[in-house]
Simulated assay, not measured.
Amino acid sequence: MEFWEISSITAMHKNRDLVLGIDTSNYKTSVAVIGSEGKILCDLRKLLKVKQGERGLRQSDALFQHIENMPYLLECALAGGQASRIAAVAYSQRPRPVEGSYMPVFKAGISFGQAVATALQVPSFGFSHQEGHIEAIRAGSELPANRPFLCYHLSGGTCELLLVNQDQIQIIGGSKDISFGQVIDRAGVKLGMAFPAGEEMDRIAMKTQDSSQALKKIPYDGLFFNLSGLETQWSRTAENRIKAGEETDSLIRELFDKILKALIQITEQAAKETSINSIMFTGGVSSSRYISGKLKTHFENSPLFIEFGDQSLSQDNAVGIALLGGRKLWR
Results as ranks from 00 to 15, higher is better:
P144H: 02
M206W: 10
P196D: 09
G283K: 06
V33F: 06
N240T: 04
A117Y: 11
N165D: 15
M103H: 03
I204C: 11
Q265Y: 12
R55G: 08
Y102W: 03
G222S: 09
D310M: 07
V122W: 09
T237V: 14
I306V: 14
G320N: 00
V89H: 11
A119P: 12
E2I: 14
H298W: 13
I218W: 01
A62R: 09
D167H: 06
V50A: 12
G126T: 01
K107F: 05
R236C: 05
D202Y: 01
A87P: 12
E75N: 09
G326A: 07
A194F: 06
I34D: 06
Y220S: 08
L47A: 10
R327S: 07
E199H: 06
E268V: 07
D310C: 11
S211M: 00
I134R: 03
D177M: 10
A194H: 13
F112G: 09
G35W: 01
S235E: 15
M12F: 11
Q182D: 06
N15C: 03
I134C: 10
Q209S: 13
V319N: 01
K207Y: 00
L304W: 10
S101Y: 05
L20G: 06
Y91N: 08
R186Y: 06
L143Y: 05
R94T: 00
V116Y: 00
Q209D: 14
Q233S: 14
S92G: 12
G126C: 03
D257R: 04
L74G: 07
M70Q: 07
F125C: 01
V116I: 15
R327C: 04
I264Q: 05
Y91K: 02
Q209M: 14
